[in-house]
Design a protein around this nucleic acid. Sequence first.
RNA 1: GGCGGAAUUCCCGAGCGGUCAAAGGGGCCAGACUGUAAAUCUGGUGGCUAUGCCUUCACAGGUUCGAAUCCUGUUUCCGCCA
Length: 417
Amino acid sequence: MVVFPPVADQLAIIRRGVEKIVPEEELATKLEKSRQTGTPLRVKYGIDPTGIDVHLGHTVPLRKLRQFQELGHQAVIIIGNYTALVGDPSGRDQARSKRLTTDEVEANAQDYLAQVGKVIDLSKAEIHRNGDWFAKMSFSDILGLCGRVTVAQLLTRDDFAKRYAAAVPIYLHECLYPVMQAWDSVEIRADIELGGTEQLYSFMLARDLQSMQGLNQQIGVMSPILVGLDGVRRMGKSLGNYIGIGESAYEMMKKFMQLPDAVLPMYFELLTTVPLPDVQAILTGHPKEAKIRLATEVIGFYYGAEAGVEAANRWQNEVSGGALPEEIAEFVVVSGQPNLSATNEMLIGHLLVSSGVCSSSSEAIRKIGEGAVYIIEGGQKVKIEDRKSAVRLVDGLIFGVGKKQIRRVRFADSPVV
RNA sequence: GGCGGAAUUCCCGAGCGGUCAAAGGGGCCAGACUGUAAAUCUGGUGGCUAUGCCUUCACAGGUUCGAAUCCUGUUUCCGCCA
């Protein structure tokens, strides 16, 4: 029999960073009952294996799931291999176009689970594929299911309503999506379902279906949408404003430090376990320090505390301190290379183009004119201002355009053995 | 099927037959500033063997000393009518 923490303690943890709990009042009751009977709550989280690079936005509900696990409850992951065939219409203004093959879906599922394992404890989670039950349904089963949902109900969904009003097509199979998602809750007897606020409709439909089946009704625990690096739009791959959990510690670090200050409270609340009063204290300090702290916390979660600190120090050094990066891309030189003189000299324009730091010689000349081009000599940046100047290449020579495009010369066939 | 409109450089978008490598905005790059970011300011944003030359304004032709601008055809897109 599992021993659970007091309900009030559990509630405090569960409520953190949650936008909406529906119905709120049932949660305490459920927790109380679970504690008395020593029965873990079944906490559902569903995803469609459509090929996702998990980023911090996805980790918001996943972290919540982990918290439930730590409290002793049962995590239930639904791999929506059948719902993926439809495509989630939530928040979209048009139907998804391509359909995935079953092989793709399964490969995506494996890939996804590997990533999710960084956030939750997979060894203690139940994993289901909703094709397990949908594949067995007969047409009359499906009709029966559809007979429980009215079109008017479906149209109360914000996304459908908008599309209908705007005369954007809504396909029949899309209407099935929330029904399928809700039916998953019936199949796995969910007590709680996690997701974003846009899932409200499906969560409530699940309650209806559960009640019709004589089951306990689930509670929806909905997280807010995490905004991306731009501080405005939701974090998403297509917007290019995300931090992926597969990225290296230092990559994450750099991205964290680019965050607008305004998102710090949200990020702390949703992505760390720093107690909220402490967060308040941190936020009254210098925004830069707060950001470093945030990054260190999050990176520490994925790579260990040490890696977090290390990334922070490296950032201070390289970006803040203006030191040269640890890793500099190499420009490999071979003898007989075009534009390379017998004495290993090269015109600066050619150097910039052939090393790839400039895309054309016109651009190279512009950048020289802008004073962005330099070589490192004796540890000092030396600006190159004459576009006709030639540079004598030696192994290890560092040159660059601006702060980001830096190269180190390496001779491929240098006599060094 | 009929009528009308549109197609411009990464995106949006302006463009009088010569002064158009093409306004303006966005994005992006670089510089200054700074606490990272943002904001702000400045410069840049077709190519090259580079103060000149070459290739661009859907495609193919044509008119003209000269075409992104005019004409013809083609393709695509968008309205309206059937």
